[in-house]
Amino acid sequence: MSLLSIKRLTKSFGGLTAVNNVSFDVEPGQIVGLIGPNGAGKTTVFNLITGIYRPDQGEILFDQQAVSRLPTHRTISLGIARTFQTIRLFQNLSVLENVLSGRHCLMKSGVFSSLLHTPRQRREERAALVKVLQYLEFVGLSDQAEQLAKNLSYGNQRLLEIARALATEPRLLILDEPAGGMNEQETSSLVALITRMRENGITILLIEHDMSLVMRVCENIVVLEYGSKIAEGSPEEIKQNRRVIEAYLGTEDEE
């Protein structure tokens, strides 16, 4: 049974159809790549899944539940987490607090227990901090926990976004160009990180322009062009698909 099932999804902005009748499935435990030339509608698909946009038509099922009409924070607490293409951290807060934001939806303290620091609230805070340190350790940022997010290097900011997303304990993690702005060394440790996340049982859907990364980690690849799906298959199939080569990989000035 698919973890995420996208069915005939369509979204237009004014006269532009950004996503046109796109369907694909993500099976549990898979790493799925969503690729396509710039402006193909990849990020729009992500924004539709996480409820930032509402689809004009079509449906998104996460674990059999329709999520496309839910507000974003509800989608997150159901178990979908995401990172952003343009880094969106809480720049003036510490690395630690950035990851703590991901724990928010798993915590319960309200206004009154927050005002009074009840014993339960203190236990919850402590447990959350312990968890946060584990996630920072996992992505390799634990020695920078008290830095402000804006003081991290670009590659580390990407890792911090991943740590923040992981802190929500997602079943599906959506990565929007995680290797964007990373050097080769950072990219290869990112590949290792993605593999480790999958070993921990997280299903991953990613957009990436770095084709070698996509071919290395993804089991299934969906190719979009002008908002429509033009191909879907294993990396080998995609490499040999004529339409994909024409649309994307084949031209001289790409890659």
Partner: peptide, 18 residues
Amino acid sequence: RALNYLREDEVAAEGSGI
């Protein structure tokens, strides 16, 4: 903290489950 997340970046806050 939730209020601070909101002030820093509303979209990211919502996207982190707030």
